[in-house]
Design a protein around this nucleic acid. Structure first.
Lengths: 118, 118
DNA sequence: ACTACCGTTCGACAATCGGAGTACAGTGGG
DNA sequence: CCCACTGTACTCCGATTGTCGAACGGTAGT
């Protein structure tokens, strides 16, 4: 079964953002980014989704938006992040999204500095 | 009327992504990023939205997710991008999103269109 | 060939979303 | 005070989303 993936040039930022604007899918992509080969159920179990069909839905969204490759291998499905394509088309986007929120004393200092004493 | 804006520390990447994962809101944010002071209706007219209440809805989504400031001024509402906060908390995110695609498919389309008869 | 396993497809369901119309509230100008 | 203007609140409606269960189709191992 060959899945239909968008070409690199057809990846739309709007689709990527709405695909990753969901906790389950964002967490799934973080797992893929952490490395290693993943199949569908391994990610499913980690995220607390109880139904296979639910993850199938999320994989389709991620695949259609160009975020992941989905390749059948035997009776499994291997999932990989399309980092090369995303980095080429939207440089820095994936890093900014996956690196997580910054909140430390530096931010507090900035906040003081930027606070409108007006 | 004072609007509720999330603190910088409370801006969640998931909310930002889903807020910007919509064509109308992404285009609106691009307009705000282009600079200048905007009120609601000016953006509304540019984007082809016909109902004020529709834009009010989008402004709320952007405001609640921490993407914009919405400040009443006289009988207007001044809208500004929260670039300082977003850059501080998610460095590079806004730039990556707003700078656009490196190779847009419209370029390919133009190339096809301009190609001399096969 | 039979069976266990992995994932998809389909249908259902509640919840949310995007868009619009109407009515209302606050502001500023005459 | 009255009116034009700006934007919100509320309601409605169709479309989409997220979740699930059940049935199905390949694949691998025995």
């Amino acid at each position: 079964m060959a899945y239909r993936h968008p070409d690199r040039d057809q990846i739309r930022i709007e689709d990527v953002l709405s695909a990753l604007g969901n906790g389950v899918r964002l967490a799934a992509v973080r797992l893929l980014d952490a490395g290693g080969e993943h199949n569908c159920t391994s990610v499913l179990n980690t995220l607390g989704i109880t139904a296979k069909s639910t993850m199938t839905h999320h994989w389709r969204v991620l695949r259609d938006s160009g975020v992941i490759w989905q390749r059948p291998s035997g009776r499994e499905n291997l999932l990989t992040l399309r980092r090369e394509d995303l980095d080429a088309r939207y440089p820095g986007l994936l890093d900014a999204i996956l690196s997580g929120a910054v909140h430390d004393e530096t931010i507090e200092a900035d906040r003081e500095r930027l606070r409108p004493g007006t």
